[in-house]
Amino acid sequence: MSGRIGADAVAAKGWLGAHKWLLLRRASQLGILALFLLGPLAGVWIVKGNLTFSYTLGFLPLTDPFILLQSLLTRHLPETKAFVGVAIVLVFYALVGGRVFCSWACPVNMVTDAAAWLRGRLGIKGGAYVSRKTRYWILAMTLVLAAATGTLAWELVNPVSIFHRGLIFGLGAAWAVILAIFLFELFVMQDGWCGRLCPMGAFYGLLGKVSLFRPAAIRRSACNDCMECFAVCPEPQVIRPALKGVGGAGPVILAGNCTNCGRCIDVCSKDVFAFGTRFGNKVAKVSQPAQGMKPAACK
């Protein structure tokens, strides 16, 4: 194992092979952004709106379920179009994985990924710690706030919607919000925003608990304990049960907080991981349960 994460994978699979999902993901993130920007910049109106609600080609409504839930809690009943949009989005993420939103659509992911990359390059370690459960408390807080104030209070400070809306409708001071997130991730807390605080991520994580499309450690017997998947994963706690078969767990990563980013697939030089469905779990159970590997101490 050489110094940089993914070096072994690059050696084994070539650079493209070791960055396949990362590139696809960036293409998705930038592609979605480009679709939204085509209208205001080039006058080609394929998609109107932003990530809270968008209208594609004049017939496809897509509504963010988190913001609609808050709006409902302020005791407002939206038009049918918003409900149709939310149904489509819920079905979509229930199929592909709740937090696919986070890793494939959300623009803040590129910012926090950049911070994580720089953190690695600069060798910044440690920082403040809060539990990954904090996001659920913040999620509850946003919902209580909506009900108590009768306004979408979280939207006043939500960096995700402020950033995305800013990119499309004019940034204003939104750059400061996003710079703050970047610096927070870089110096204060690793995986701080996306992995510990963001209530949107928490919401999609809960949705992802039932989702169909999942990564799995299908060839976990080939694992050579290089730990690179743990190092690259933004939610490393989701990998262990599937990879190590803790408590007889199958190889499918079932945790809702897995973002389906596919970086574990990329960085593994042994091709342990692959995308599949949650139903792949039983079949694979027949294959030998993981041997008594000692999980290396995580820092």
Binding site: K48, R75, A146, E155, R165
Partner: peptide, 13 residues
């Protein structure tokens, strides 16, 4: 402030 989800479709149209 509870009903508007800040999507900007009114702005666009």
């Amino acid at each position: 402030l509870g009903a508007c989800i800040r999507c900007g479709l009114c702005v666009r149209d």
